[in-house]
Simulated assay, not measured.
Amino acid sequence: MKITVYGGGSWGTAIARLLANNKHEVKFYIRNKDIVDEINSKHKNSKYLPDVDLGDLTALNDPDRALEDIDMLVMAVPTSAFRKVLTNIKDKIDKKVIILNLAKGIENESLDRISEISKEILPDNPFAVLSGPSHAEEVGKDIPTAVAVSSENSDVAKEVQHAFASKYFRVYTNPDLLGVELCGALKNIIALAAGMADGLGFGDNTIAALATRGIYEISKLGVKTGAKMQTFNGLAGIGDLIVTCTSMHSRNRRAGVLIGKGIAVEEANKQIGQVVEGIKTTKSAYELSKKYDVSMPITAKLYEVLYEGLDPKEAVTSLMTREYKEEIEEIFLI
């Protein structure tokens, strides 16, 4: 296939390398010319993926050329930039081009998922999302990884599946687009909370409790909005939650650790050096929980920490001393 990867962060770089290794005709667009020059001369992206050899992958700095005569556009830009980027390039994309999203978030202003933004701007283009436990640092080194691809069009999902699949990268299809998108976005909230618990000096017990109650909490919102419970139990849900809550490759977990140690949110974001999707997604999820009248205590307390200045220790105390409940609640009886 003729595929353009649009965005040169760590995940975009790892995916561009994967697709090139799969023998596709890859055009890798990066806005930063210094990074383009480094990739083309040294086969490295030292800013975002320093330990990965990019082989024969090349990059370019010309967006018009990057969008010419392609079958698929892989969008590797942050959620907050997706609408602007797609609006700027919409007139340069043929209607047959598949739009594949890699970002995991929910737009703050509209509370739209990425698929909804894409449908608004490019209503005729097929859309798919790739999600699951997949750190760029490991995919870039061919460490075995399994992910899910979802689209409202099963043929599109299968086309993406075959384009990405390799002996190191296994791709499953999942027809629940809403669920896959929500899983990818909401698990970052729980990863932030897990990182904060670590930063506060708590242990494995705390992380396990947050992850377990976290998947319950985000699946409640998912089911209420029409997603399938099974998706939250799969790669896009519990799979991605496990890796983001436990690995220091996770930007969200690392940011949470810094915040738990008392570092201000803005400074923590700056130290990570890349977009921490969970910070903005917490606000979106908090607003969605109110819109759909779903109790999300972890999300609510994290929102207070990030946006209202609540001390992380007080947030933990508040969660631990909530009204006593049954563990197996209504969602698991659906």
Rank of each mutant, 00 (worst) to 15 (best):
L54W: 13
K27G: 14
L54R: 09
S46E: 08
M72R: 02
K92Q: 07
N32P: 03
K92N: 04
H43G: 08
I39L: 10
S118P: 02
L54Q: 12
L60C: 06
D51R: 06
Y29S: 09
V52Y: 10
S110P: 02
N40L: 10
E116S: 13
N108C: 07
E25Y: 14
L60R: 06
N40T: 13
I99C: 04
K47I: 04
K23T: 11
L60H: 06
K42P: 07
R31L: 14
V77A: 05
V97Q: 02
Y29L: 11
L102D: 11
D69W: 10
N22L: 11
I30Y: 14
S118I: 00
E107I: 05
N88I: 00
K33M: 14
D64G: 08
A81I: 04
L49P: 09
R83V: 09
N61C: 11
L49D: 13
K96F: 11
V77K: 00
D53P: 05
I70Q: 02
G105T: 02
V52R: 09
L54F: 15
R83N: 04
I106C: 10
T87L: 03
K95G: 00
N45C: 15
G55M: 15
S115K: 04
T58L: 07
L102E: 14
N88Y: 00
L86T: 01
L100K: 01
L102Y: 11
G105H: 03
D51K: 12
K104S: 04
K104W: 12
E120D: 06
R113F: 15
V26A: 07
S41M: 11
D62S: 08
K92P: 00
T87A: 02
L67W: 12
A76C: 07
V74Y: 01
D53V: 11
E107V: 05
E109G: 07
T79V: 07
N45Q: 13
R65A: 10
P50Y: 01
I114H: 02
K33G: 09
D51Y: 02
L111C: 12
K90A: 00
I35N: 04
S115I: 02
E38S: 11
P50D: 08
L102G: 05
I114R: 03
F28Q: 08
Y48K: 05
A103F: 07
L111Q: 12
G55I: 14
S110I: 10
T79Q: 11
N45G: 14
D69Q: 14
K90T: 01
I70T: 04
H43A: 08
K33Q: 15
A59W: 07
V36P: 08
L122H: 01
R31V: 10
T58H: 13
S118N: 03
I99M: 10
I114K: 02
D71A: 05
L57S: 12
R31A: 12
K44V: 11
L86F: 00
L54T: 13
D56Y: 14
S41G: 14
